[in-house]
Write a protein that binds this DNA or RNA. Structure first.
Lengths: 207, 207
DNA sequence: AATTATTTAGTACATTTGTACTAATTTATA
DNA sequence: TATAAATTAGTACAAATGTACTAAATAATT
């Protein structure tokens, strides 16, 4: 990728994150870079292409972060690390989650990719739950679809905590990131066995 | 309120729900009513006013629905009914929740009202949790801020389940409403005591 | 050095949409 | 009935924004 293209992406990310996707026009991006709109368009034929590119940057950032949080001592620790990693990546590319719905509505390619991604994540999640149960860290299902619904809950909370924070507090800063990370972590707690709960409390203390 | 004003609101709600807020212009509303835009503007000086009015219709619809679900046998039943009532009202005014963030960002008066509303809801929620605990239907907190976080979870799930459904399935119909209602109901289950769990299962059977 | 390809700038356009404004028409009132 | 108030229609405008297009400038290549 050309140096200019990288500069455009970097600046776009900053502006998008700061001002929100729909308050940033091509003109404001090119202004911030002392560059003509024509030039911008030479590198990205469509505005959509910039957003598209940034989305896929996020995806690979998450992939890397998840890999790095793989070498943990326990399965539960892995859950803590993975969750925190995802939340942090979301925050880095927060413009996407400040109005997740608009992004997904306006960018079909992104939406399609996301839908596929979620199918995979759901499989991974099920496998993960299974391994927690086998290790006697998590109890079995007591309700129909209980852990399917748990997955849905994780998904909604992950994708929309930032929107919620913005509406409620009209900002998202590091403090909020911590708060919502804890909230998401705690989501799994009441499903844990006594052993699991002890392990949870140990990990929590170590953070 | 004049007959015409009511007609405009009714038609706007239909179009907003069907096509989404930002795919409905004043022109399309007036077309659907065989009415001039000028006339529309006579009744609602700003487009915002229509949305404003519909939002407050929703608010009072919810108030009424909550009152009606007050006369239940048990506290847990009240939870089931109230939750379902809210979800259904949200569905009636789904245009607001199909892109909740945009609505809240673009309508300051609505956002301010919502913020206040949530402060009250949080107090009500805390009181409700307290009464469940006193009745030995719910266990005490085991984690710091556990039930504050539980409230946040309820809030995010309520406000954004529809957005999530739209992104994932590209539609929201009655089937999805049922599914997400169950998901939200189940959120409280793992915090219940044995007595509480039994009561939950009884109520669930009766639905 | 000459030619070709790449990059940059600048202008213009099309479109959408909320809304302001004026005039006509209908309804209410005295 | 005459006058005032209300409702309705129609036109025009302003502002924003993505993008198409052309020409100039710079870099690369032969």
């Amino acid at each position: 990728m050309s140096r200019t293209k990288e500069k455009i992406l970097k600046q776009s990310l900053i502006l998008f994150n700061d001002q929100g996707l729909d308050h940033v026009s091509l003109r404001s991006i090119s202004n911030a870079l002392n560059m003509s709109v024509g030039n911008l368009q030479y590198h990205f034929k469509k505005r959509e292409d910039i957003i598209h590119e940034l989305y896929f940057q996020l995806v690979s950032t998450i992939d890397i972060a998840i890999e790095n949080s793989g070498n943990t001592q326990s399965k539960l620790e892995e859950f803590f690390e993975t969750t925190a990693a995802i939340v942090n990546c979301f925050y880095e590319y927060r413009f996407i989650f400040q109005d997740f719905t608009s992004v997904m509505n306006q960018h079909e390619a992104i939406r399609t990719h996301y839908q596929e991604l979620m199918k995979n994540r759901k499989l991974q999640f099920s496998a993960f739950i299974g391994s927690l149960i086998k290790r006697n860290l998590m109890r079995k299902e007591l309700l129909p679809n209980e852990y399917d619904h748990l997955f849905v809950r994780f998904q909604i909370l992950s994708d929309f905590w930032m929107s919620s924070s913005l509406i409620e507090l009209e900002k998202v800063a590091q403090k909020e990131v911590s708060m919502y990370t804890e909230m998401i972590h705690q989501t799994i707690f009441p499903y844990l066995t006594e052993t699991g709960k002890e392990a949870y409390l140990m990990i929590q203390k170590s953070i």
